[in-house]
Nucleic acid binder design. Structure first.
Lengths: 193, 193
DNA sequence: TCATAGATATGATTTTGATCATATGAATAA
DNA sequence: TTATTCATATGATCAAAATCATATCTATGA
């Protein structure tokens, strides 16, 4: 269930996007909002001499360009980094839902607030220099409060990308954490010691 | 003007906090929201054996624990990293403002959406491995669209922290960018070439 | 005025993560 | 079944940033 569905909205349409295809261009009017079911979409700005500046890579299970809800025209280009599958929603419908239903507005606000929190944690994490400490802190943050165990819902490889390490560095960090008895591990199941 | 003032709310009070003092503890009921005028506040969770896990450092000119707007009790401790000055707001007042005034809700939502966007950009930036490229991309992102010049509102040293570099690495990156004629610079004033 | 703290700046050395290479196991498709 | 792909895993080498050491400049306050 994506955040739009939580508001009781249904998608206007589903859209497929091949790798390299663009979803919108700078200056286009904003009439729709998207939720990424599959794939990744890169947002790119351009200097006036044409130099491209990629500034965001939106992943699956995210809505993206949230800020575009509050402006009329896109200020960047969106290009599919790989094959994508999107849910399409109407922006006016969405805003109307917020106007008419404070509960809906608060629910969406909560979603955004939670995003802010998660992103801040991620930044704090990425700023830890030591790969070993970074991985350890990541695991600690993922373990449910009051618990010591965790089963990863994703591959370690994708964790590596998420926390800004190569997968080699990640596996070495895991090995080091096991050697120093800070974690026990069996596949994607981890336990703090 | 902080985001609460934009909603037409006035602070209930101002609060000073000495370094090391705590603002709230895990389990405390949430009745107030804070905006940091000065200083930094660290949010810390604890494992059941007491091991502290710092997971967020909130800086000046931020509200923080936004997600706490939507829960009743704190799930972490907040401790002043240095001397702090805070504006205090009433949580019920804030929620009431949203309930009664969809415009206010949308305005706050816009603030959160903008935060999400900014934080995502920051993550993308920090994930650039090369210090030189990272600094260059940072500068490009800060230059106003359609312009080539920029005067930093802060010290380069604090920029280094923001983008996850030591200040030495940052100064070397700047020197390299000047040597390769990608920027010109005089103090905190920069120009893309 | 002088002292002090902090930002700016650069050199030398060390550490560490990236990169490249390679191997194994598990899942999936042909 | 076999082939193929991808996650997992580890070793060797290299490049680059961290660290440590200094020095200058600037702002601030005593």
């Amino acid at each position: 269930m994506n955040p739009f569905e939580k508001l009781g909205l249904s998608p206007l349409a589903h859209q497929q996007l091949g790798k390299g295809q663009s979803l919108f261009h700078m200056g286009d009017p904003i009439a729709r909002m998207y939720f990424i079911r599959q794939g990744r979409i890169r947002l790119v700005r351009h200097l006036e001499d044409g130099t491209p500046i990629p500034f965001h890579l939106a992943a699956a299970n995210q809505m993206f360009a949230e800020a575009s809800l509050f402006t009329d025209h896109y200020h960047c280009d969106a290009i599919a980094e790989e094959d994508c599958s999107l849910d399409v929603y109407s922006k006016p419908q969405l805003l109307a839902a917020f106007q008419g239903d404070p509960k809906a507005a608060l629910s969406f606000m909560a979603h955004l607030a939670q995003q802010v929190q998660a992103l801040r944690s991620q930044i704090e994490l990425i700023n830890i220099k030591s790969a070993t400490q970074r991985v350890f802190t990541y695991i600690q943050g993922k373990v449910p409060p009051g618990d010591r165990e965790l089963t990863l819902p994703q591959s370690w490889k994708s964790v590596a990308a998420e926390i800004g390490l190569t997968h080699e560095a990640l596996y070495r960090a895991l090995a080091e954490l096991q050697k120093s008895k800070r974690i026990e591990r069996k596949g994607r199941q981890v336990r703090l010691c």
